[in-house]
């Protein structure tokens, strides 16, 4: 379980201070899909970076993050790299948005994660990279391909393979379907959901799209202005929102869905 308590995050830009997270309390369970939903500026991406402790200089983070009973706030950079990022909590990069470096093959990029964080040899790592690509529906031989040879959806599959490389317990996916069309989006979220269920992982899907979240997640967390304003099982939240902001997000969608031109 990931437990977040009283999480505060401030960014300093010049003389201005911006509060991105303003006392977030949250529990994310394994073997469940939780969607974190919010409009732009709600703090959802900040929450993801804070969970991975991947903050830019000038950011100050306070509060508690406990993952599987371990206090994450006290870990050193070295410990985070050796036994937390990729291995316990992993981030699905936005593959379609050029998260891969163009100059290395997919196999090399996935293998590097395994060499650094799992201390595998190059040969072992390349073998595992091929198996990971296969698990996400790509041919094993595509370890030899470069990112530009793949479509957006295929790159996103490779990004999922990379996130799974070190057998993490939780997968964080921040807008994993950005820049994909609706059919590819459905393919990717179905794949994410299937793989995490099969492997018994906790999936945390961060999205601005409440409809997408409701189609995929068991639980919804609604963020507004750096705070959790609503939280609960998906069906309950849709039927009986616990906060006015959820209601207005739902209304905006329902108006659109009910909106007939004439």
């Amino acid at each position: 379980m990931i437990a977040v308590e009283g999480l505060r995050l401030d960014y300093r830009t010049g003389i201005r201070r911006v509060r991105a997270l303003d006392g977030v309390d949250l529990v994310l369970r394994r073997a469940a899909t939780t969607a974190i939903v919010g409009e732009s500026g709600s703090g959802k991406s900040s929450l993801v970076t804070a969970l991975l402790r991947l903050l830019p200089p000038g950011a100050s983070l306070s509060g508690k993050i406990t993952v599987e009973g371990r206090n994450i706030m006290s870990l050193s950079e070295k410990e985070l790299s050796a036994s937390y990022r990729w291995t316990t909590v992993s981030l699905v990069l936005q593959g379609a948005m050029n998260a891969f470096t163009p100059v290395l093959t997919l196999g090399r990029q996935i293998a590097e994660v395994l060499e650094v964080h799992r201390r595998l040899s190059r040969t072992e790592a390349m073998g595992k990279a091929a198996a990971l690509l296969e698990e996400t529906g790509l041919p094993r031989s595509w370890t030899a391909r470069y990112p530009h040879e793949l479509s957006g959806g295929q790159k996103q599959r490779a990004a999922i393979a990379m996130a799974l490389a070190c057998d993490p317990l939780y997968l964080l996916a921040d807008e994993p379907t950005t820049a994909l069309d609706v059919i590819t989006q459905a393919e990717i979220v179905t794949l994410l959901k299937g793989l995490t269920r099969w492997r018994g992982l906790g999936l945390v899907l961060v999205t601005h799209d409440l409809a997408l979240a409701s189609a995929v997640a068991d639980r919804l967390v609604v963020l507004q202005a750096g705070r959790v304003v609503d939280e609960g099982p998906t069906e309950r939240l849709l039927d009986a929102p616990g906060h006015g902001h959820t209601t207005s997000l739902l209304e905006a969608l329902k108006t659109l869905e009910a909106s007939d031109h004439d």
Binding site: V182, I183, Q185
Partner: peptide
């Protein structure tokens, strides 16, 4: 039909055609 089925709608499951 695939376009319509893949579109996220409140509380409805998503359906993706074979890739």
């Amino acid at each position: 039909r695939a376009l319509a089925a893949a579109l996220p709608r409140l509380g409805q499951p998503l359906a993706a055609p074979p890739p």
